[in-house]
């Protein structure tokens, strides 16, 4: 465990000092600034729009963090053969996967917490400016939604690690991970659309079955999406929170175990 920890510490440090972080931070601040200036354009739903923009800014920045910095942390080891150096030390493949994952996760959490501070400031500011429009707003729900942005990113990191262990190029793992994310956030709409029986063309049963199978293999990111609830201040049941966390945890464990399996078979030439 000491070894896992040592690896995650250097992974985290390598990530948090990355220059791209400033770019991502700047992007998030830009969106939040935009939020403050745009908020007044909306006549009634200022609170809702503010929450939407804040959570979306967090999600987007988180995605950038994962797709650029976290990918870099994982894939560069393999691309540049640093991994050969690491494996010349008494570190097993499983420990490597776990250490990298924890390091990346830690990095994402810390970066996102920094952004969350700005986000809280923005919400408070807009709320101070337009106090009448925040009737339904509730901090606990907002924070819950924010935490689930983290859960989404944690799953995404595990997916990234899994793909990094099977592909030989970091670009391929990037593309695969982005694809899984896009499918993950849209699969629910697609599946329910197909099931809804309200459509203009008949859909072949093969396609229906494929979508159904995919819906079990890939994660349904909507499960961890509480933006709507946060925007309207709707209460979130404990069951949904528990189910969401369990779903994410089990999925991550499976992905990391698979990644270790693949990694054990892999050669580093």
């Amino acid at each position: 465990m000491n070894r896992v920890w040592a690896l995650s510490v250097i992974t985290y440090k390598e990530g948090i000092r990355n220059r791209s972080l400033f770019g991502i931070l700047a992007f998030a601040l830009f969106v939040l600034g935009l939020n403050i200036s745009v908020a007044g354009f909306f006549m009634r739903e200022v609170g809702k729009v503010t929450v939407d923009m804040n959570l979306s800014a967090l999600t987007f920045s988180g995605l950038l963090l994962v797709f650029f910095v976290a990918l870099h942390l994982m894939a560069k080891d393999i691309d540049k053969k640093t991994i050969q150096l690491v494996f010349s030390k008494p570190l097993s493949r499983g420990e490597y996967i776990l250490g990298k994952y924890l390091g990346i996760l830690f990095f994402v959490v810390v970066s996102l917490l920094a952004l969350a501070v700005f986000s809280i400031a923005t919400v408070s500011l807009v709320r101070g400016l337009y106090p009448n429009y925040f009737a339904g707003f509730s901090w606990p729900i907002f924070f819950t939604a924010g935490c689930f942005v983290l859960v989404q990113l944690a799953v995404l990191c595990a997916i990234l690690i899994l793909f990094s262990t099977v592909t030989t190029s970091s670009f391929a793992s990037l593309i695969f991970t982005v694809c899984v994310y896009l499918v993950g956030v849209t699969i629910e709409d697609v599946l329910f659309y197909i099931q809804s029986g309200f459509r203009t063309e008949a859909i072949s049963p093969v396609v229906q079955e494929v979508v159904k199978v995919v819906s079990y293999i890939l994660p349904n990111f909507s499960m961890w999406d509480f933006k709507l609830e946060a925007a309207h201040g709707l209460a979130i049941g404990a069951e949904r929170i528990g189910l969401g966390l369990g779903y994410a945890a089990v999925y991550i464990v499976v992905l990391l175990a698979l990644a270790t399996l693949f990694f054990q078979r892999r050669e580093f030439n």
């Binding site: 629910e188 599946l191 329910f192 819906s215 079990y216 349904n220 909507s222 499960m223 069951e239 949904r240 189910l243 969401g244 369990g246 779903y247 089990v250 999925y251 464990v253 499976v254 175990a257």
Partner: peptide, 18 residues
């Protein structure tokens, strides 16, 4: 085991989402 639990949870998740 994880995959099994995952499939079970997935079913619950989809029900919940519905």
């Amino acid at each position: 085991v994880g995959a099994g639990v995952h499939v079970g949870l997935s079913r619950k998740v989809w029900e919940n989402r519905q």
